[in-house]
Design a protein around this nucleic acid. Structure first.
Lengths: 222, 222
DNA sequence: CTCTTTCTGTAATGATCGATACATAAATAG
DNA sequence: CTATTTATGTATCGATCATTACAGAAAGAG
């Protein structure tokens, strides 16, 4: 038995063998950083803000996360892991595309207004403007995260076509764009203080035209 | 005749009588500043960026505009004067609320993608995050500008009720919120590079449910 | 225990931030 | 012309930015 190889925790554990262990909870610190980035944005959040909220010194921050940009990238990942399940669970468990989309919008209404758990308003990915500030890598990251919504919507709609739920003639891309637009718009309303019930009303109004939008016939009549 | 009072240009002209006149075009400099704030946001735009784009030194900037915050406030005003006419002209000239809303969304699709005149993508008001950065006064200004859209929509929908175009039972607030949501979402898509035709398709899909949404009967069915 | 390794707190780095002091240039009033 | 008034360019202010030396502290390995 190759003891030295099999006993070492290669991937799961940090694999640190000797020396002083980290004194702070990395996950808790990351959660604080995520919250701060979420509320204030990347540029407006300073290292001083972060170290204060995380309860650590700046050398510890850099030792644990590398740089401010790398910390933001990890905060983004942490955010998506924590919150996308809240928004997408109903979408993936729904039996029809119609119910999936409605779940997505209704759950978004609840999560975006901070009604499910105590989190800031609006979507960190949607409202991030880090791409327009000259941070190229972070911009790519955020934009890639944004396309996930569109991809999932198109995939589900195509499945609905295959299953016969909606007609083959449905413009999947346009319909997915529409749903994405509504969800994005709800983020902005949530940030500006709109209530959960207001966003739910918006979601229901968006769903009201579903049958018309998924009908075969003429589209551009208005 | 009180010559000293009547001959002086009190309000129209800058009322400067003696001394060196300003060497740069204030409006042109403001337009450059607006463009820069629009693209990069308030915090990410530095005074050095501004003075370079405006072609002036920082003392001239402060002499003409007072401070960075005051310059942003005036850039916001300049933006609204220049661009809201493009978006709202069709809305106000339309004969019906339905056509007004459709005009608003279709014109937004064109303007937000920079297809009408050469301007940055997305709406400066909608995408501004200056309210979340601790700039209280600017935040109020931006938020006030955002409510204008909702107010105009509700006013027009109420007129449509008075005129018999849509039933009295219409939930004006919810419907206005929905339209506002779509327009806001379009700003985000435009910033991320969506094309004019994509946004127009979104606008048409949003309009497709109009008859259903303005119908009397049951609302929450799906 | 000692040694080694790693983390933590203090303090400081050069760069850049928004905002100005100062002297000079420029243009009008008389 | 001279006197006055205002804008401009340079150069700089203190504050804050992200980042990092440095030394001491803490904990596992032996």
């Amino acid at each position: 038995m190759q003891k030295s190889d099999e006993n070492r925790k290669v991937d799961d554990s940090p694999a640190r063998s000797r020396g002083r262990p980290r004194a702070f909870d990395r996950e808790a610190a990351l959660a604080q950083a995520t919250r701060l980035f979420w509320i204030k944005g990347f540029e407006a959040t300073s290292i001083a803000d972060l170290t204060e909220a995380m309860g650590i010194g700046s050398p510890s921050l850099y030792a644990a996360f590398g740089s401010k940009e790398a910390l933001y990238a990890e905060a983004l990942r942490h955010y998506r892991e924590d919150n996308e399940a809240l928004v997408w669970a109903g979408f993936f468990s729904a039996g029809t595309a119609r119910e999936a989309v409605k779940s997505l919008l209704m759950d978004s209404a609840a999560v975006l207004t901070g009604c499910v758990v105590d989190i800031p308003r609006g979507c960190m990915v949607t409202l991030s403007s880090v791409g327009s500030e000259g941070y190229v890598e972070l911009g790519k990251l955020v934009r890639a995260a944004r396309t996930v919504t569109l991809d999932r919507l198109k995939l589900r709609l195509n499945q609905a076509i295959s299953g016969g739920e909606i007609p083959v003639s449905t413009d999947v891309h346009a319909l997915a764009r529409f749903i994405q637009t509504v969800q994005n718009g709800m983020s902005i309303l949530a940030r500006d203080g709109a209530s959960r019930s207001e966003l739910e009303a918006v979601a229901e109004l968006a769903m009201l035209g579903w049958d018309t939008r998924t009908a075969d016939a003429e589209r551009g009549q208005g």
